[in-house]
Design a protein around this nucleic acid. Structure first.
Lengths: 160, 160
DNA sequence: TCATATTCATAAGCTAGCTTATTATATCCA
DNA sequence: TGGATATAATAAGCTAGCTTATGAATATGA
């Protein structure tokens, strides 16, 4: 196993874990008539109302078209709404609707439950450190995507 | 933040990281004409030739029908083959074909590259511990899926 | 022994990712 | 002023997850 952890099975373990967690969270969230992906969008809108779709997509590390579909569903259910921008007619800005409030309350509880289940037996300090490492890895991968090896870094990076 | 780490944003951070890593790995693997999901299957078959599809699906925490489609692609490309079982005509067993060998060699190198990129700046001991924690979380979630809260554990668990 | 239940693989149809292309609107600058 | 370029959202069509349903083969048990 040359060079330390290089040959660890990190890639596939992460994929399998994400698959399991997604299946579990989707099943639980289905009680409230929402999917995990839609829930993630709703939760972000709650914290940052008034964003453009493109800004939100960037925040969530997701392509704008993927977000468009999720927003369609959330609007269909009356949880959020698109409002057109005063000065740029291309833009939609996203706002919560009243109907989302009770749902968001329940989802908050569910999030705590799911997190507690997943992290059971791991002490809080370790869990915290692990979360920090996951964020660091996210940053590494984001940089790798934006500055592919062998190419000079582009100016005007979105992530500074 | 009551009760330690319960309200950490573990759920969505994991989802975003998995999305980023998948996008990156897919883009790199595309150089060899394969996707990350197909690659994961191929790598498992390499390590455990002769498994039934249903056994492999269980190993990979994935539904049999999802696996069926991935196997279809791998067979189309001539990298693996389904062989029927001598004693049970319902069963397909999976074997590598010669054509997979050079590909597997290249993919091994790619895996090391991707892992090194993702884990850059994290020391090997920490990375190792983190991987162990991810496995522990996987186990927690698997148990939660199989023994939903409020129901008695079913006998004949698949994961014992 | 034969009806019932289980298992294996797959089909149909859904969500959620992606890339590439399109349309409408803004911006830039010559 | 007006043509090229850039940006916002969406469409089309792909992969990979899922649930539910189905057909074939096997196992079980009265």
């Amino acid at each position: 196993m040359p060079r330390g952890s290089v040959d660890m099975n990190f890639l596939f373990t992460l994929g399998e874990l994400a698959r399991l967690v997604r299946a579990y969270a989707d099943k639980q969230a289905a009680r409230y008539g929402i999917t995990r992906a839609q829930w993630a969008v709703l939760a972000k809108v709650e914290r940052t109302e008034g964003l453009k779709q493109s800004e939100l997509a960037e925040l969530m590390e997701m392509q704008p078209i993927t977000l468009t579909r999720l927003i369609d569903r959330l609007c269909d259910n009356g949880w959020i709404e698109r409002r057109s921008d005063d000065t740029d007619r291309r833009v939609n800005r996203l706002y919560l609707r009243k109907a989302a409030r009770p749902l968001l309350g329940k989802l908050g509880g569910l999030r705590s439950e799911l997190t507690a289940t997943a992290l059971e037996g791991i002490n809080p300090a370790d869990a915290h450190r692990m979360l920090g490492q996951l964020e660091a890895i996210k940053e590494n991968v984001r940089n790798a995507i934006q500055n592919p090896a062998g190419e000079p870094p582009r100016k005007e990076q979105r992530v500074g």
